[in-house]
Simulated scan of single mutants.
Amino acid sequence: MYYRCCFILFCLVVANCDDIIEVDDITDRNVTVLAPTESSVVTGKQIIFTWEKIEEAESFHLQVATPTFSNASQVMVDTLVKGNFFTKDTLVDANYEWRVRAENSGYQTPYTYTRFIVSN
């Protein structure tokens, strides 16, 4: 009888785990870029990439390419970030495009693209 009760309890717990493990679908959300903004000229030793948080996101996939992703000669950054900013030290003078998307264990948003120029 004890084992039968344990088995029934186990089945009930497993059957209800789908409700506990539900992951929010973020595919229709968009990440809003804060800086650097479209066509901005960045000077200085550090560039701080920032964007608005999406509450249901677990991380953000950030990439930086030169001159653009469609014509990339080099991908300078390709990283997962837990927060809503990333600091990159020293990019050479050039045109860049950066993109960011939100991700969780089941879904991801589309990338948001922005171009900028480094001129020191």
Rank of each mutant, 00 (worst) to 15 (best):
F60V: 01
A35T: 15
E55Y: 00
Q46E: 14
F60C: 02
K53Y: 02
T66Q: 11
P67M: 02
V31F: 08
D25P: 10
I47L: 10
A15N: 12
A65L: 02
H61I: 06
D78A: 08
V41F: 05
E52R: 12
V42H: 07
S70V: 00
I20D: 10
S40A: 14
N71A: 12
E52A: 12
V75W: 09
I20T: 06
T27W: 02
V13T: 13
S73M: 13
F49C: 08
F69Q: 01
T32H: 14
S70T: 03
K53G: 14
V33F: 12
D19Q: 09
A35R: 14
L34Q: 15
H61E: 09
T32W: 10
T50R: 14
T79P: 02
D19R: 11
T32S: 15
L80F: 13
A72T: 00
Q74E: 13
I20Q: 09
D24F: 04
P36C: 07
L34M: 15
T37C: 12
S39I: 03
K45S: 15
I21H: 08
T27F: 01
T37L: 15
M76N: 09
V13H: 08
D28Y: 12
S39A: 14
D18M: 00
T43F: 00
F10H: 05
N16G: 10
V31D: 11
P36M: 05
P36N: 06
W51C: 09
H61K: 09
V75T: 14
C17P: 00
L9W: 05
V23T: 13
Q63D: 01
K45H: 10
S70P: 00
V75Y: 12
S40P: 03
S39E: 14
F10P: 03
D24C: 02
T32G: 08
P67Y: 01
I48K: 09
N71C: 04
D78W: 00
F49M: 09
E52F: 05
K45C: 07
A65C: 03
F69N: 01
N30Y: 13
P36V: 08
Q63S: 08
I26T: 07
E55L: 02
V14L: 11
T27D: 11
M76D: 11
L12E: 01
I26D: 07
F10L: 14
A15L: 12
K53H: 10
T66L: 03
V77P: 06
T66I: 04
W51S: 13
V41M: 11
V77D: 08
Q63M: 12
V33S: 13
V75C: 03
S70F: 01
E58K: 09
I21F: 15
L62I: 04
Q74A: 14
G44E: 06
G44W: 06
N71P: 01
A57C: 09
T43Y: 00
W51T: 08
P36E: 08
F69C: 02
V23W: 04
L9T: 12
I54M: 05
T37I: 13
P67C: 03
A72K: 04
V64K: 01
L80R: 09
T68I: 01
